[in-house]
Design a protein around this nucleic acid. Structure first.
Ligand SMILES: NC(=O)c1ccc[n+]([C@@H]2O[C@H](COP(=O)([O-])OP(=O)(O)OC[C@H]3O[C@@H](n4cnc5c(N)ncnc54)[C@H](O)[C@@H]3O)[C@@H](O)[C@H]2O)c1
Ligand SMILES: NC(=O)c1ccc[n+]([C@@H]2O[C@H](COP(=O)([O-])OP(=O)(O)OC[C@H]3O[C@@H](n4cnc5c(N)ncnc54)[C@H](O)[C@@H]3O)[C@@H](O)[C@H]2O)c1
Lengths: 215, 215
DNA sequence: AATTTATCGATATATAATTATCGATTATAC
DNA sequence: GTATAATCGATAATTATATATCGATAAATT
């Protein structure tokens, strides 16, 4: 009776809340907390408790009335649901300011993402090392990706070169692309594209701010 | 009749799509394109044309049947609606990997955000320069923010220090906080908090990828 | 032991967001 | 000039998402 009610379309909004819970749960775990209720979780984020329960329901985890959910197993369920239980190896293309910051960020491993190599087409960067990662020429991307069975690609090149990076990745058999450039990209059927648009977040901020100043 | 139908709550999803249109519109503008229809815009992003029209409606811009919208004025309307028509000065706290990348990113200015100074509590960093920005001690934040009438703060410190940064900003009269740390933060009534959670985006990617591998 | 209270799971309702429909409008083709 | 096709604005229908309700359950309280 766990997954019989699971809808075939996972709400994107739920998918985005689950990492929030996970992060908090890991803190609770570290503090030795054994059980947590939806009410408690909800309070932390100013969500509705029922919303949290519905999100958790997606993962298949079942709780106990009056007690809530076991922190340790809930962490496992969320990770498994998100695909963070086993590490995904990834290649990064574009070792500029943002690319470097991502290479230097150790926590992605916790979230199942293991960056194994980085690529750039600037000959001055090729051969150098950044946070222990050797920078390869993009010409090596295809061979290495196939040899190492890489299915995840991260794009941190300028927008005008983002489509090139996509094409490179698609040719190399990459199945999922995490794109940080603001360019609209074309991908073939079957390849997953997830965009990080900082300006979207900025838009929400400034629009709200505008209304604060008005009133 | 322009804004009489405008709802008092702006859909967050719309707010996030507007920058996408804007980016494309600016490219069109640069290419000398004078008019654009919702159909064209929609095709670029694989959105429904009606969705695009509704989003544009929010900005108050009116179009002409068969022609569409004038690119130049539409850009203006979107920018104004997002609060990107006049620059907002901002302070950044936490000049680490991500903070540096943000300081080095010139395009935020296009989106109405003008970073004017950066702060860190690492004494080795204080006094140095990063991309032309002098790094100040966080102890100077309050004075400078008040003196320079700064209302926007950017947080790029480790999660365990993010609440400190919030408190610092709130005390200094900051009205809107753009937070890049994954920590859940407490803010007083009236202050705007916008979080950038890269792991949320990663969650969507890996969950989708998991299902690709399953089938 | 009985009562109270918190919380679960399931189901129902309400709200928000997206997509469809339709008459009006205007350039382009004939 | 008249017909055709594209697209607008407005309204309606649909779908997705969030919130409310309710009986069941299990700890805490009396
Ligand atoms: N830095 C930020 O804070 C920030 C914020 C929002 C969005 N972005 C986006 O992220 C992307 C990277 O930004 P950045 O600030 O790191 O830029 P950057 O200019 O610092 O770095 C770009 C890197 O990509 C490399 N590159 C260019 N074309 C390439 C290609 N075809 N193949 C491989 N490598 C290539 C360059 O050599 C450079 O090292 C951009 O699309 C930018 O719009 C950055
Ligand atoms: N780097 C990434 O790609 C990335 C990705 C996702 C999230 N983040 C988040 O962004 C934040 C910054 O990440 P990072 O990789 O740049 O970390 P970092 O460790 O490189 O930089 C943190 C900086 O903050 C400074 N700092 C610490 N405490 C401070 C305080 N109380 N006041 C002022 N400055 C203080 C440190 O001296 C350091 O310079 C973190 O919360 C991280 O979780 C980073």
């Amino acid at each position: 009776m766990t997954n019989s009610t699971t809808p075939h379309t996972v709400p994107r909004a739920s998918l985005k809340r689950l990492p929030l819970y996970l992060h908090l749960l890991e803190n609770l775990m570290a503090d030795g907390v054994e059980y947590v209720s939806c009410t408690q979780l909800a309070k932390e984020f100013d969500f509705d408790a029922i919303l949290v329960r519905k999100d958790i329901e997606l993962t298949g985890e079942v709780g106990t009335a009056r007690i809530g959910f076991k922190v340790a197993t809930l962490i496992g369920s969320i990770k498994s649901f998100l695909g963070w239980d086993k590490e995904q190896d990834a290649f990064l293309v574009g070792v500029g300011n943002l690319g470097k910051a991502i290479l230097g960020y150790k926590d992605f491993k916790k979230y199942g993402l293991n960056i194994v190599a980085a690529f750039d087409n600037d000959s001055r960067k090729v051969g150098t090392k950044v946070f222990g990662y050797e920078i390869f020429s993009t010409s090596k991307f295809g061979d290495l990706a196939k040899r190492m069975h890489i299915y995840v690609g991260i794009i941190t090149v300028p927008p005008e070169h983002a489509q090139e990076a996509v094409d490179l990745m698609v040719d190399a058999g990459i199945k999922a692309i995490w794109n940080f450039s603001p360019a609209p990209l074309r991908i073939p059927e079957g390849v997953i594209l997830e965009n990080v648009r900082l300006t979207q977040s900025l838009a929400v901020l400034t629009n709200k701010l505008k209304r604060v100043f008005k009133s």
